[in-house]
Simulated scan of single mutants.
Amino acid sequence: MTGVTAFLVHWAQMPRYRWLARIVGARGMRQVASAAYDHVLAPTLYHLHRLRKHRRDAGPQGD
């Protein structure tokens, strides 16, 4: 289970997020949310992860 489907499962189990699961899980919205996740959010998160990893691996400079 990945992407929006995973979020929907988690949100449906969290009382404060059930409303979000119902909205995003609605017909039409799920396809839009999946496209946004696959083409915008996931690549952005991966890019941020790579930056953090690069900074961590570079370590402190100086001395």
Score class of each variant (00 low, 15 high):
residue 59 G to R: 05
residue 6 A to F: 12
residue 54 H to P: 01
residue 3 G to Y: 11
residue 21 A to T: 05
residue 11 W to H: 05
residue 3 G to R: 09
residue 41 L to G: 04
residue 14 M to K: 13
residue 17 Y to K: 14
residue 36 A to W: 12
residue 45 L to E: 12
residue 6 A to V: 01
residue 1 M to D: 04
residue 9 V to G: 06
residue 30 R to M: 02
residue 39 H to L: 12
residue 60 P to G: 07
residue 30 R to Y: 14
residue 28 G to N: 07
residue 9 V to K: 14
residue 61 Q to E: 11
residue 38 D to H: 10
residue 42 A to P: 02
residue 34 S to W: 09
residue 16 R to Q: 10
residue 7 F to H: 07
residue 18 R to V: 14
residue 61 Q to D: 08
residue 45 L to T: 05
residue 24 V to F: 14
residue 6 A to N: 05
residue 63 D to A: 12
residue 36 A to N: 07
residue 33 A to R: 02
residue 19 W to L: 13
residue 25 G to I: 03
residue 15 P to Q: 05
residue 53 K to N: 06
residue 57 D to S: 01
residue 17 Y to L: 15
residue 42 A to C: 01
residue 55 R to L: 10
residue 2 T to E: 15
residue 10 H to I: 10
residue 24 V to Q: 02
residue 35 A to T: 05
residue 13 Q to A: 15
residue 12 A to M: 04
residue 26 A to P: 01
residue 28 G to A: 05
residue 29 M to D: 03
residue 36 A to P: 01
residue 60 P to T: 04
residue 41 L to Y: 06
residue 43 P to C: 07
residue 16 R to Y: 00
residue 42 A to N: 09
residue 50 R to K: 12
residue 11 W to P: 00
residue 40 V to W: 10
residue 62 G to R: 09
residue 12 A to N: 05
residue 48 L to M: 14
residue 12 A to D: 08
residue 15 P to L: 04
residue 3 G to F: 11
residue 4 V to Y: 11
residue 20 L to E: 03
residue 34 S to D: 12
residue 2 T to L: 07
residue 28 G to R: 06
residue 39 H to Y: 11
residue 54 H to L: 07
residue 1 M to R: 08
residue 18 R to A: 05
residue 46 Y to M: 08
residue 56 R to C: 03
residue 15 P to V: 11
residue 20 L to T: 11
residue 9 V to C: 01
residue 12 A to F: 03
residue 7 F to L: 15
residue 41 L to M: 08
residue 36 A to Q: 08
residue 17 Y to R: 15
residue 22 R to G: 03
residue 41 L to P: 00
residue 14 M to C: 10
residue 11 W to E: 02
residue 41 L to V: 15
residue 24 V to N: 00
residue 57 D to E: 15
residue 35 A to R: 12
residue 47 H to W: 05
residue 29 M to W: 15
